[in-house]
Each structure stands twice: as C-alpha cells, then as structure tokens.
C-alpha cells in the first residue's frame, strides 16, 4: 500500500468535517429557555391539560384539534375534569393564543432553542405583539 498517507489524511479531513457542528458549537450551549406565561395564563393556573402533559404533547393535541375542527367540525373539547374549551389556535379570547398572547416569549423561545420551525403562522394570524 503506497497510499497510506493519502488515506490517513483523507480520513482525518473526513472526521474533522463530520464532527464540525460539535466542536464549532463547543461551549456555546445556551441555557434551556423557560417559556413565560401571560398574567391571564397564570391566573388560569392550568391549561387544557396538565402542564407536564402540555409540555411534551402540545403538538399532539394541536394535531388532534386541527383534524377534528377542520375535518369533523367538532370544536368543543372537554377535558377529564369536565372543563370546556373552544378548540381553536388563534380565533377568539378563549383560543390557545387568546390566553398565550405572548407568542415570542411563549412559543418562539423554545422552538428557536430546539430549532423547530412550525409553519402555523404562515396562515394563522398571530396575536398582536405585546408592547413592553
């Protein structure tokens, strides 16, 4: 084998490139963001379902809600505790965004951190930005 050096150099370059994201971001990890609640959300104490559940599964709930509203015309959600909710992302004060009207601090913070970009707001009209 005369190509030993070439192969080793190639391998090193390959490993450097493939691990690039790791060492490029080393030490730059940002702290896990905590979503902020609006006063209205704080006062309500609990969301549609318990906080822990919402944290992990809110996208599932949104998906189910979306299908049942759009496809089945069922718009009322009654949770285990018997509380009624209007199934809507952004229409009206009793919608998701009616309570969580601080999209930037509530949604975007974590989504940006996790690098997910839901395209909800390409169509749904986001609540007006809060004035600080």
């Amino acid at each position: 084998m005369n190509d030993k050096n070439k192969i080793i150099t190639g391998l090193i370059i390959f490993i450097v490139i493939i691990t690039f994201p790791f060492w490029y971001n080393m030490g730059k990890a940002s702290p896990v963001p905590e979503p902020k609640l609006t006063d209205k959300a704080k006062a309500a104490k609990e969301c549609v379902e318990p906080k822990e559940y919402m944290k992990v599964e809110h996208m599932q709930i949104l998906d189910i809600w979306r299908d049942s509203v759009v496809r089945e015309a069922d718009r009322v959600y009654i949770n285990e505790k018997g509380k009624k909710f209007n199934m809507s992302l952004s229409t009206g004060d009793d919608s998701c965004m009616g309570c969580h009207s601080n999209k930037a601090d509530f949604c975007d913070k974590c989504h940006d951190y996790a690098s997910v970009r839901p395209y909800c707001w390409d169509c749904h009209i986001e609540p007006p930005k809060e004035k600080k």
Binding site: Q60, E72, D74, R75, V76, Y77, I78, N79, E80
Partner: peptide, 28 residues
C-alpha cells in the same frame, strides 16, 4: 384520529392512567 397520523402512542399512554372518563370532543 391521531392513530391515523403518527405518534398516537404518547397520547394514549398519557390517558391510559385516567380510567374514569377521558377528554371528549363535541361539535358546538
């Protein structure tokens, strides 16, 4: 409905413990 899509499991698991009556969906 959610089983038609992917990831129905976490939803089912989350509610499996609540043996009384789970959430329900109605028309307006």
């Amino acid at each position: 409905i959610s089983a038609l899509g992917l990831g129905a499991k976490p939803v089912l698991n989350a509610f499996a413990s609540s043996d009384e009556h789970g959430p329900e969906i109605f028309p307006n």
